[in-house]
Simulated assay, not measured.
Amino acid sequence: MKLKTIYASLKKDLSQIESALDKTIEANHPILREASKHLLKAGGKRIRPVFVLLSGKFGDYNIEQMKKVAVSLELIHMASLVHDDVIDDAEMRRGKQTIKSRWDNRIAMYTGDYIFARAIEQIAGLNKPEAHLILSKAIVEMSIGEIEQIRDQYNWNVNLRNYFRRIKRKTALLIAISCELGAVAAGTSPHVQKKLYRFGYNVGMAYQITDDILDYVGTEKQLGKPAGGDLLQGNITLPVLYALKTKRGQDGILPHFADLEQLDTIDIKNIISIVKESGGIEFSQQISNRYLEKAFHELEGLPEMPARQSLYQIAEYIGKRNY
């Protein structure tokens, strides 16, 4: 089953979620309304809502319950992107102007806060106290991750443990609880909930590592932003961390890191070439594949049904995607 087929099978419910997203971010204030709508229209894969819906299939599936979870998690994701763009001083996302670029940092921060508030409002409609606890703990962890990313900005000496912990909080955690909360909302057993959480965590880790790889091998058209954007924003990711462990990487990359805040496009192109030559891409792909294998293993312990096969196919797509 291809990804398009999976989305097609969920088309009706995803359409309801899209309508709910649009309705939820409706604001009385014209600037808040325009900024929020601008972000929503930029689109996205809606991976988190898809994980919520598919995980709900393992229990008592009710679209009204699933919708509360899916909308809340997608809004949290959207709000975090708005804040990320302010921190990273990003001008473009998905080929469109960011809110901070089109308006300013203050509008972006308040828009992100507004979307966060709407997300909490949505999950409040779910009569599952454990879901609220899961979500609040995740938001705390995500906030710590954002602070750590700021701390590690332009720090080429960051170690692998810090990198993996950062991407867990940045990406994997929200995908993990998308799977878990979909299962919670559907009233599945704790065993199924834990399996789906671990599946989502491993898929999320692979997803972010693949993103970090694409920043070195993707085109600006594919990425919606210039290649090497992570380095320009001071984010040191797995491909370059591996390259720095090789003599070629140390000799060729470290001189550029004398003043990371002054990197220019020529420096970035040189670093990208060295990362590729040193095997940083292949190493990162191997690590991503290991996480995917762990995700597949978690699925083996779940009931055999179409939703399980769909989760397998999505995980497989994540490991092979090129944008």
Rank of each mutant, 00 (worst) to 15 (best):
A8Y: 10
L10N: 08
K11E: 15
K11H: 14
K12H: 13
D13A: 03
D13Q: 07
S15A: 14
E18D: 14
K23M: 05
I25Y: 04
E26W: 10
A27K: 07
P30E: 05
I31K: 11
L32A: 10
K41T: 11
R46F: 07
R48S: 10
P49A: 01
P49K: 02
F51K: 05
F51P: 01
S55V: 02
S55N: 06
G56Q: 12
K57Q: 14
G59R: 09
D60S: 14
I63W: 00
E64S: 11
Q65W: 12
V69Y: 02
S72N: 06
S72C: 15
E74I: 07
A79R: 00
S80D: 03
L81Q: 10
H83A: 12
D84V: 11
V86W: 03
V86K: 06
M92W: 12
M92D: 07
R94E: 09
Q97K: 15
K100D: 10
D104C: 08
N105E: 15
I107C: 12
M109V: 15
G112K: 01
I115N: 00
A119E: 02
A119L: 02
A119V: 02
I120Q: 09
E121P: 00
I123E: 02
N127I: 08
N127M: 12
A131R: 09
A138C: 05
I144S: 05
E146P: 08
E146N: 07
N155A: 09
N157I: 00
Y163D: 07
Y163G: 08
R166W: 08
R166N: 13
K168I: 13
A176R: 00
L181G: 01
G182S: 09
A185Q: 12
A185V: 08
K195D: 04
I209R: 03
I209G: 02
D211S: 05
D212Y: 08
Q222S: 09
L223A: 03
L223K: 05
G224H: 04
K225H: 03
A227F: 00
G234M: 10
P239N: 06
V240Q: 01
K245I: 00
T246V: 02
Q250G: 14
Q250R: 11
I253A: 08
L260W: 13
E261D: 07
E261K: 15
D264F: 06
N270I: 13
N270L: 14
I272L: 12
K276W: 04
K276L: 10
K276C: 09
I281S: 09
I281C: 11
E282I: 11
Q285Y: 07
Q285T: 14
Q286K: 13
I287R: 09
Y291T: 06
Y291C: 10
L292K: 01
L292Q: 08
K294M: 12
F296A: 05
H297F: 13
E298M: 10
E298C: 05
L299I: 06
P303M: 03
P306A: 15
S310R: 12
Y312K: 13
Y312I: 05
A315Y: 01
Y317G: 09
I318W: 01
